[in-house]
Design a binder for these strands. Structure first.
Lengths: 199, 199
DNA sequence: GTCTATACCCGGATAGAC
DNA sequence: GTCTATCCGGGTATAGAC
């Protein structure tokens, strides 16, 4: 009963944790990491600041929990399909979805810039995230070349960098100009890349 | 003598101001606006915090001074040439130059993300900057269409958005991965756009 | 033009009661 | 598990002397 049941102290604590994490996501996306305070998060979730620190020993720890949970939730459903030319259309779906969750876009835009400083607590997280994102893209493009869909002289690394840049840059621009049609922009990007590289 | 000479109190104050602004640029680019402190800037420039406030009445005022001066200095030499297809190669030159001044890239990457919050003191500055950048790009592309260099069905707005996104996204990525070859990536972007849109 | 001193506020983290 | 109280550090901005 106490080991795997949904009731009992564990279930309650786990629920609290999730509640805290999603509240922290909101606060960090609105005010950044440095700008958002533990007191603010605590009060929104109905706790004192000390009460919040019972669940997460430090602000840094809470930040990493937010980042890791979201990364897992946001990407897991897509990972399996990220192969061949399908990768490009998948990215279109990602921005389509992102355009419906401004908080997430704000979170990643704000924090990825803030964490460019090497001593930021999330620096390693984003560095690794860029690395793995790039590796996935490179893999998909190499598959497309081997499948004869792209010309053999295509440079997978360069395209991966460019595509990642477009995704990040569009989302930042979109924060300032919500009327911007991100999926349409991605379409144009894909068409242009294909115009040059299609076999 | 007192009106236009390089000596006297005005020249000294002006020099101080420039010294402060360039120091503030360093600090804000390393630690962001919220993260950088007036005390830190003051101490680097050899002043007390109160002494610094004699030159700039508030931290917000100093931030805007930094932003406006740099914007003017960084873009002025290029503005005149930003016409027709030349615009694209000009952007290549801009990133080539930016790759030699990491401080500037950090400043714009960090602050443009931080200032996406509508109540940030630099929000209007960046909003206006995006607007004018986009307008310039749109103008250049329209010229190219009229000159018969690009196909008539080209969408100038969409290309302007995409190109701006690439510039911003590349620079952010470059902060995490300094080996990234930004000019080469821009070249690839230009070639791809031309492959699809050249007349 | 620059200083010291200070007012005032806010942050994260800890101690210890309940 | 949650609280109150507190420590300690840091921030901006102001007052007033030099």
């Amino acid at each position: 009963m106490s080991s795997a049941g949904q009731r009992g102290p564990y279930a309650k604590s786990a629920k609290r944790r999730e509640e805290i994490i999603s509240t922290a996501l909101q606060v960090f996306s609105e005010q950044g990491f440095q700008g958002g305070s533990m007191r603010e998060i605590a009060s929104r979730v109905g706790l004192s600041q000390a009460g919040l620190l019972h669940h997460f020993k430090s602000k840094d720890e809470l930040l990493l929990a937010v980042l890791e949970l979201r990364d897992q939730m946001d990407w897991a459903p897509y990972r399996a399909q990220a192969h061949g030319l399908n990768y490009l259309t998948l990215m279109r779906k990602v921005v389509e979805h992102n355009a419906t969750v401004p908080s997430l876009v704000q979170l990643y835009s704000r924090l990825s810039a803030e964490a460019a400083a090497p001593d930021h607590p999330a620096h390693q997280f984003f560095k690794e995230r860029y690395r793995s994102t790039r590796a996935e893209a490179v893999g998909a493009i190499q598959e497309s070349i081997q499948a004869g869909e792209l010309r053999p002289d295509t440079d997978p690394e360069a395209i991966a960098e460019l595509f990642t840049a477009v995704m990040d840059g569009l989302q930042l621009q979109w924060l300032y100009q919500p009327a911007l049609n991100m999926p349409q922009a991605v379409d144009l990007m894909i068409e242009s890349l294909l115009a040059k590289h299609k076999a």
